[in-house]
Design a protein around this nucleic acid. Sequence first.
DNA 1: TCTAAAATTGCATATCACGCAACACTAAGG
DNA 2: CCTTAGTGTTGCGTGATATGCAATTTTAGA
Lengths: 254, 254
Amino acid sequence: MSTVKALAKGLKILDQLLESHMRPEEFRRIGVTEVAELLEVNKSSASRLLQTLSSYGYAKKDSEQRGYILGPKMHNAAQTGSQVIFRDLARPFIYQLMKSSGESAHTAIVSQGKALIIDDIESAASLRVAGGIGRLEQLHCTAVGKCLLAFMDLTLPRDLPQQTPRTITSYNKLKFHLEEIRLQGYALDDEENLEGGRCLAAPIYDQSAVVIACIGISGPSVRMTLERLPHYIKLVMDCSRELSLSLGYQGHKP
Amino acid sequence: MSTVKALAKGLKILDQLLESHMRPEEFRRIGVTEVAELLEVNKSSASRLLQTLSSYGYAKKDSEQRGYILGPKMHNAAQTGSQVIFRDLARPFIYQLMKSSGESAHTAIVSQGKALIIDDIESAASLRVAGGIGRLEQLHCTAVGKCLLAFMDLTLPRDLPQQTPRTITSYNKLKFHLEEIRLQGYALDDEENLEGGRCLAAPIYDQSAVVIACIGISGPSVRMTLERLPHYIKLVMDCSRELSLSLGYQGHKP
DNA sequence: TCTAAAATTGCATATCACGCAACACTAAGG
DNA sequence: CCTTAGTGTTGCGTGATATGCAATTTTAGA
């Protein structure tokens, strides 16, 4: 059994970056010189190893100070762990939402510049919007996507592909629309993503009053009519408030 | 700018392992032959790269079927993400526990073969057991450690260093003692880790009735006397039950 | 602005990653 | 149980590349 030495060196660096990251009280950036000492190699070798780790997203040159920190790929792995816990916590709430609304209910978070459906409880109705745990949805034309855009301070996408005739494809129109969503406290997908389908979504706040996800319902327009919308809006917003409270949310501090 | 090619190859494998891991519906083990095709190298090279990743804990040969999966180090990164959410959820409960008991209260999980304190709310009393978010504690002689050993089906450590004259250093004695803890539903550190200090701990169950953590209190023996222990035990166990319920725990199914 | 320390880059050479081939292991089918 | 095909591992020699050196660039602090 043999090891590939260059790879081993890179992984040792990754160990150090991980260790520094996992203990917030002991966080520090790691420099080329420090890595050179750790591996007992020349600084130039250390620099190239760090560059390689960076180019693949496993390390990142800190933008504020000298030194390298853990890169986005490891952050994504950490986020997946949180997703599983959060999904399980939110499940009873969206189950109840599905029951009270009669439509499919789901939980969504931001991932890879899209809205990732991390849980989805389908309604028993024969005509329903197709489900999809793990599905990535466009941000600009889905209720969950727009909800996340409005409440999470995300960078607005520039590319707004048309999904239906009703899709908002203008950056300025979307920007204005998101302001409305913030005032209303919920987002409506009015056949913007799927013809014949409407969705509603509302944000989930954590204990520090930061939005971390959203929940929503999807259904066919023949059932989710504009006349019945207020009924659905109330259900979704009640559910999102209860889930937020269960996460320790205590309302916005002035 | 140049990349270290051998390291780059290893990171590409890690990318694949991560990708497979993050979407449970798309999980699959990755074999040497598949890696060889991905990287366009000979199977022997692929094998050596995977072995190197494995020896550093980033990959793991699956024990049930052929192929490699994401290794414990990446799991640990994922766990850290969950820790932050869990820590925040548990905080109000241990805060209340500190208030009602008058002693420092903490949350602990298993990490690196030890008990990791992920949150710690110190009592206002002048004489108290020193705190330490991020501290790793021995499993065999602390209340949180013994609690995790008893309820989480961990491998019993063989090395049981003596911390005080009261430390249990016999494997068989510890094994028997853990059976007692399982029956009682809580663990007591009776000056086994620190002379003049006693700790109590109780397990936290999640929605699938699996123990994922524990909470505990620590205080000086002059306050946490044997006569007052039942009072403290009740507080700790009440708190652990409430926190478990808030996580969706519904009691043990037969 | 200057200086010292940290980080990066080009080049030649020493090291080791690589492919080949042989072998070992495993799972499935007869 | 035996056979076969596919998967994974190991030893060896060679050429590709990782490395150290030295020069250069960048950066942060006085």
